[in-house]
Amino acid sequence: MRVLSVDDSSMVRKIIKGAVEVLDGELLEASDGIEALELLEEEYKSVDLILLDWNMPRLDGMEVLKRLKGDRRFRSIPVMMVTTESERENIVRAIQHGAVHYLVKPFTIEELIKRIMESLGKGGL
């Protein structure tokens, strides 16, 4: 299992890395939307899940989500938003644009692992 974490906080990426390693997976990292799209150009065939922050420099998560779902190479990769944006309209917007899950920070490591498994279609713990 390969997971791409797109978040401008290295601390959040480290937390996600810990969760992915519990699931025997490998983490790819990008610190903003542009870096994520560049990385996906090379790696999209082997990425099973994208965890996407919303507020990031250069290109925000919602714009990345739209581009991913508008590109036939990337659109089948499930995307889970992992963000501080917790207003209902933002959650609805992300789901409408194709996110499979929406995890609001702060979260426990158990919640994160459960959502990753659900996003991969593997059910909960």
Binding site: M11, T84, E85, V104, K105, P106
Partner: peptide
């Protein structure tokens, strides 16, 4: 980075 992210998460809530 971690302390800045703490502020970010707190402010988001």
């Amino acid at each position: 980075d971690g302390v800045a992210e703490l502020v970010n998460i707190m402010a988001g809530e």
